[in-house]
Design a protein around this nucleic acid. Sequence first.
DNA 1: CGTATGACAACAA
DNA 2: ATTGTTGCCATAC
Length: 105
Amino acid sequence: MGNSNRDNDAILRFCRVLAEIPHGHVVTYGDLAEMAGYPRAARLAGQILRKLPRDTRLPWHRVINAQGRISLPEPGARRQRERLEREGIALIRGRVDMKRYRWRP
DNA sequence: CGTATGACAACAA
DNA sequence: ATTGTTGCCATAC
């Protein structure tokens, strides 16, 4: 198959970081990539998140773009917004207050 | 190997 | 604030 060990490593590293994002906080795609050891690979973060199974336990909804907006197209955007609000992160005019909810270790 | 695409981001005007 | 451009990394054809 077309899967190399490096790819699986990447996915594993992204998932490890993803799992560490605290409830009630968010990170950007760029943040996630950087924390996973792939600086400037924001798009890679998106690709990996897109591949996650629908029923994953990982907090995929805590990843948004650098502008505090949801990048996921409908109907996913709706699920993400609901999950965020469920943990106290409300979107004001379609944006998350990054100043307040962005997680920086 | 070139081109297009995508849950992105930084920067210029 | 908004729009357009360029850069980035991987994948699909």
